[in-house]
């Protein structure tokens, strides 16, 4: 579905990454590996069409990405390295806002079920600022389920998370792939979950 060919990005005459090609089709999990500062986040932003590559082209469903942007954005979820939940609101209010903004049809019973799997259900009425970093990250990952889109693009999804949750996420990724979805995520450590492809930056 998503095809990126020979992407190169230079900034201030410095090469951030060079000649990276990826092809993301349904059922694939791609990990983006690289050291700190190797341009993982920048690469993901390029894939998201937030940055313009210096050279190289990106196609979405056979068309140029810039020509087919609306459809592309309708089909992807992006989890940034920063957490986007609003700190001064409660967990429940955040979920409600997300449900509205992403016009999700997921019902609250399902969400509560997932929350209890993630050990977050007790915090439903608590402010996000009282949660620990790992819990905020888990709440952020809940957006994957709420948005319910085909492509998942995640930037360092495993920071602050324990082994148990990481395995759970790996399970979720595989389930998603079985439903014709696809995942691309970046990590500076070894992939702790099974992946189908590896890109080194």
């Amino acid at each position: 579905m998503l095809l990126a060919q020979n992407l190169t990005l230079c900034r201030l005459e410095r090469i951030i990454f060079e000649n990276i090609s990826i092809s993301l089709s349904s059922g694939k999990i791609i990990i983006l590996k690289g050291k700190n500062g190797s341009g993982k986040t920048t690469f993901l932003k390029t894939i998201l069409n937030l940055l313009e590559p210096t050279s190289g082209t990106i196609y979405w469903k056979g068309k140029l990405l810039s020509r087919n942007l609306y459809d592309y954005y309708n089909n992807l979820t992006y989890i940034a390295d920063k957490t986007s939940s609003i700190k001064q609101l409660s967990v429940y209010e955040n979920i409600k806002i997300w449900k509205k903004i992403f016009s999700s049809h997921m019902n609250y019973e399902k969400i509560e079920e997932i929350l209890s799997i993630l050990n977050l259900k007790v915090f439903l009425g608590a402010r996000v600022s009282t949660l620990s970093l790992g819990e905020i990250k888990k709440l952020e990952l809940l957006r994957l389920m709420i948005e319910n889109k085909k492509i998942w693009i995640l930037d360092e999804p495993f920071t602050n998370l324990d082994m148990e949750t990481i395995n759970l996420i790996g399970q979720t990724f595989e389930d998603h792939c079985k439903n014709e979805g696809c995942v691309i995520f970046s990590s500076h450590q070894d992939p702790l979950i099974p992946v189908s492809d590896e890109v080194n930056l």
Binding site: L48, Y73, L76, Y78, T83, S84
Partner: peptide, 13 residues
């Protein structure tokens, strides 16, 4: 901007 919600809104159309 700082918590990334502007990017999210943009990606959401």
């Amino acid at each position: 901007f700082e918590n990334g919600n502007l990017t999210l809104l943009h990606l959401n159309g």
